[in-house]
Design a binder for these strands. Structure first.
Length: 116
DNA sequence: GGTGTGACCAGCT
DNA sequence: AAGCTGGCCACAC
């Protein structure tokens, strides 16, 4: 309580973290999909903002599996190095080219469709 | 307590 | 066709 620094103080963040952690290995999802799954459709920005706090969470969040609707690695700059996100994705077998996930439609993991 | 911002999305010009 | 603005909600100062 008294969120003085504990990022887990918020429910929304925990929900986002939980969904991201549920993303299978070698799969990717989008901010809007998570937002829609949480019921806050249109608030995809909050998901991205939650990801920003993901590194504050004690739990390791595979934020590299979260990309924008176009499959573009928009948040690559927030990993400390712009190449880390792509490196992590390629490490999982996800091919990335031009900061974009190849076969994004096939690797796309929708929580509202597969998680249920 | 109000204002600003943010790793987006979709629509309008 | 392409660029930009608005809108959405939650967190920090």
């Amino acid at each position: 309580m008294a969120g003085t620094g504990h990022a887990d103080s918020g429910t929304f963040f925990e929900s986002v973290f939980a969904v991201v952690q549920l993303v299978p290995f070698g799969r990717v999802t989008s901010y809007g999909a998570i937002a829609a799954f949480l019921g806050t459709k249109g608030s995809a920005r909050m998901v991205g903002w939650a990801m920003n706090a993901s590194h504050t969470s004690v739990t390791r969040i595979p934020a590299h599996r979260v990309v924008n609707r176009n499959g573009l690695l928009t948040g690559r700059h927030h990993f400390g190095s712009p190449a880390i996100m792509q490196q992590l994705l390629e490490n999982e077998g996800v091919e990335v080219k031009d900061n974009q996930v190849v076969r994004f439609a096939e690797l796309f993991w929708d929580p509202a469709r597969e998680l249920i």
